[in-house]
């Protein structure tokens, strides 16, 4: 049985890095004796795989993990104690929201997810600036930002990475849907480009969705129970 879980990462645990998060999951699953499959070989590792890394310091209500169970073992996904048990073994702020069987014909999280939605807030990201900033960037053919990676400074056109921008329904946060193909655009990089002069370190970042594209239809990887997720629902653009 192959599982996919959706979980949240909110509050103090937002400062736990992606790498440490993986270690936390291994410990949590061992605490509840979850029948996780292990790799063969000299140093067996649990078969867990994570999706797009969340930047350290960002929060999320849409994180995903794929877990392979030992062949021949299945668990009752309708049993609420399964979700609760794992959530209790995870630190405060990390809670499992959905657990589902994974279609083995589909790809990994890394290959399936084509875009992610973020909410940005903080000093300098003021309500009256949201709409104009979104319009200006969306109307432009290119958006040049200077980025540094591996010690090299270079100017990139990040406009193709931006799918949509706009205020959230409350009009206080900046919502961005960003493509994940190629060299990803960090939410903090976008914030600085959209609101020049801000200190990107002060920007609070929340990931709200991870989207897949199948036959032209865009869907949340796993939608929350009782919630109908319509793409672009919160975007005014």
């Amino acid at each position: 049985m192959k599982l996919r879980l959706r979980y949240s990462k909110l509050g103090k645990v937002r400062f736990v890095s992606h790498r440490d998060g993986a270690r936390l999951w291994e410990r949590a699953l061992r605490r509840v004796s979850f029948p996780v499959a292990y790799t063969e070989g000299f140093t067996p590792r649990p078969k867990l795989s994570f999706g797009m890394a969340l930047p350290t310091g960002a929060e999320s209500v849409a994180e995903y993990i794929d877990i392979d169970l030992v062949v021949g073992v299945s668990i009752d996904l309708d049993d609420p104690t399964v979700i609760d048990g794992i959530s209790d073994a995870l630190p405060v702020g990390m809670d499992v929201q959905v657990i589902a069987e994974r279609d083995p014909s589909r790809g990994s999280l890394q290959t399936e997810v084509t875009s992610t939605t973020w909410e940005l807030a903080g000093p300098g990201i003021e309500p009256e600036l949201l709409e104009p900033a979104a319009k200006q960037i969306l109307a432009a053919d290119e958006l040049l930002v200077e980025r540094e990676r591996k010690g090299q400074r270079r100017i990139d056109d990040v406009r193709p990475l931006i799918r949509n921008l706009g205020p959230d329904s409350s009009g206080t946060r900046f919502v961005a849907e960003l493509n994940t193909v190629g060299r990803a655009l960090r939410p903090s990089e976008l914030a600085l480009a959209a609101f020049p002069g801000i200190d990107p370190v002060d920007v609070r970042v929340l990931r709200t969705h991870q989207w897949t594209d199948h036959d032209g239809e865009r869907r949340e990887v796993l939608s929350l129970p009782g919630v109908v997720t319509a793409p672009d629902e919160s975007l005014s653009a």
């Binding site: 029948p35 292990y38 649990p46 062949v71 021949g72």
Partner: peptide, 14 residues
């Protein structure tokens, strides 16, 4: 003894 068991009854894990 405490390890979870697979269908063959063998302990799972490393």
């Amino acid at each position: 003894a405490a390890a979870p068991r697979g269908p063959d009854g063998a302990a799972i894990g490393c």
